[in-house]
Structures are given as C-alpha cells and as structure tokens.
Simulated assay, not measured.
Amino acid sequence: MSAPSTPSFRLVAIPRLAAGGRWRVEAMRTLSEACFLWFTKGQGRITIAGQTRGYTAHNGIFIPAGVMHGFEVGPQVFGTAVFFGKEPELDLPADPLHLRIREVHAQQELNVTLDAIQRELDADTPGHDKAARAHLGLLAVWIERQAAKSGETLKPDGARKLVARFTKLMEERFRSGAGVGDLAAELGVTATHLTRCCRQTCGRSAIDLLQDRRIFEARRLLAETKLPVNQIGESLGFHSAAYFTRAFQHLTGASPTAFRRSL
C-alpha cells in the first residue's frame, strides 16, 4: 500500500509571510498557486492587478494564480493565508475577490474551517490528509457562497482593464529588459496614457510597478540563491552591473551585495 501523498496546500499566519522582510509581501509579484488571505485584525492597502483598495479585519481576499499583487503588513495585522497548491483540484474563482464579511456566523464558520484544516495537517492519524483536503473543499464552497452574497469581483473596467493587461504583460516580460514604452506599445497605448491609468488605479506610475517587480525578483534571488550579483542583474534585463546596482540601491537603500550580507 502506497504512503499518502503530502498535501501541497498549506496555511501560514500572515505575519510570518513578512518574517524574512516586508518586501516579501509588499512588492509586486505573482504566485504559481491561488491564495486566500483572511485578515482578523489590523488594516492596510492591497494592490491586485494594478488596482489598490483598503482592507480591514474580517476581510477575505482571493487571488488567483498568476495575478500580480502586493499588500501592506503592519505590526498590528493578523490573519491566515491559505495557499491552495499548484494543482488544487477545486472549483476556485477565476477572478480576484474582495469579501467583506460582516455576519458573525460567517466569520465563525470560516475560522472553524481554517482550524479544521490546520488540525488535520498537523495530525498523524490515518486519513488526516484526506480530511484536510475535504475541509479545504469546504473552504472553496464558503468562498463561493460568500462571493454570491457580498463579494466584490475585482474585474477591471476602463483604466483598470488597461492596468490589469499591463500587469499581466509585465509578468511575462519583466526579465526581458523591456521598458514601459515597449510594453505600452504592445498594449496599443502611449506610455503617458499607461502611466496616467496606473496612477488612477493604484497611485503609482507604470515605471514604479515595473521596477518594483524586477527588484522583488532580484531580492528573492539574492536571498534564496548563490547566483553572482552581476548574473542576477543580467537575468532581469539590466544592461550593466552598475545600472543594476544603482536601481537596486535606489529602491531598497542598500546595494545588492550589502542586502545579501544582511540576510
């Protein structure tokens, strides 16, 4: 009889996501798996597909795989992040959702489900992995029901639609060295119009979003690999080591080498 497979999904306390530095959650990036953020205390701002809005306690935010996002995690922010795994085999929403859960019963139902998932993940009893998956399925149903009742589907419109297209293209091309003008041309608009729309939807320019994404990846590679600094810069489309160092230091306050040494 084969051993049960280890579940690919997991629950993580939201403060732990920033344990290695707030840049890990605040910078623009995408995930290869869907995630659900359940905030139980605190408030902040979250940007999803170029659209920024506020969140507070008892807000649940669903982010599909491949959607660019970043959110503030202050010292008073608490909650749980659910990562569904790369092949969740669940019927999950195709679009981002922002759920503002005001009913106490619905809040309690979610908390009970999350506790049950974690309890089964931590157990070593027979069938605990199957039980954890079953409770994860109940979470997916809970999200579907709450979305039908009160969810705000973050489907972009007008400027938001353009910025969503920009963030999707940016995720595909940020390593290529393409600039905002290049990406804007591929989208059929001018760089000025694109930047105007970005400022309208999230308060940041198009170049800020692009550089944020590239520098996030640079920090990740510096923290998680032993690749030489110049090789990391080249892999992200920087034409010279000096340009990479200047851009990195401008956004982080430290050179790539100093950042790596600080870890």
Rank of each mutant, 00 (worst) to 15 (best):
residue 67 V to I: 15
residue 233 G to S: 04
residue 189 V to L: 04
residue 11 L to F: 07
residue 69 H to V: 06
residue 109 E to M: 06
residue 193 H to P: 00
residue 220 R to W: 11
residue 195 T to R: 03
residue 8 S to R: 14
residue 44 G to K: 04
residue 82 V to I: 15
residue 146 Q to H: 11
residue 99 L to V: 07
residue 16 R to I: 05
residue 218 A to L: 03
residue 213 R to T: 12
residue 154 L to E: 00
residue 86 K to V: 15
residue 81 A to E: 07
residue 132 A to F: 10
residue 22 R to N: 12
residue 52 T to K: 14
residue 228 P to M: 09
residue 146 Q to V: 02
residue 215 I to M: 13
residue 11 L to E: 09
residue 5 S to E: 14
residue 74 G to P: 06
residue 162 L to P: 01
residue 90 L to V: 08
residue 75 P to F: 09
residue 102 R to S: 11
residue 125 T to E: 15
residue 23 W to S: 09
residue 139 L to K: 02
residue 44 G to C: 11
residue 174 F to D: 03
residue 246 R to E: 11
residue 159 A to T: 01
residue 54 G to T: 14
residue 24 R to I: 05
residue 101 I to W: 06
residue 54 G to C: 12
residue 140 A to R: 12
residue 80 T to N: 05
residue 1 M to H: 08
residue 146 Q to G: 00
residue 202 C to S: 14
residue 54 G to R: 15
residue 45 R to T: 15
residue 193 H to Q: 14
residue 9 F to P: 04
residue 13 A to I: 02
residue 221 L to F: 01
residue 212 D to Q: 08
residue 62 F to H: 04
residue 150 S to V: 09
residue 124 D to A: 13
residue 48 I to N: 06
residue 132 A to M: 10
residue 30 T to I: 10
residue 59 N to T: 05
residue 102 R to Y: 05
residue 170 M to E: 05
residue 60 G to Y: 02
residue 228 P to A: 08
residue 210 L to F: 04
residue 91 D to K: 15
residue 196 R to Q: 05
residue 79 G to W: 04
residue 106 A to K: 10
residue 42 G to C: 09
residue 26 E to C: 03
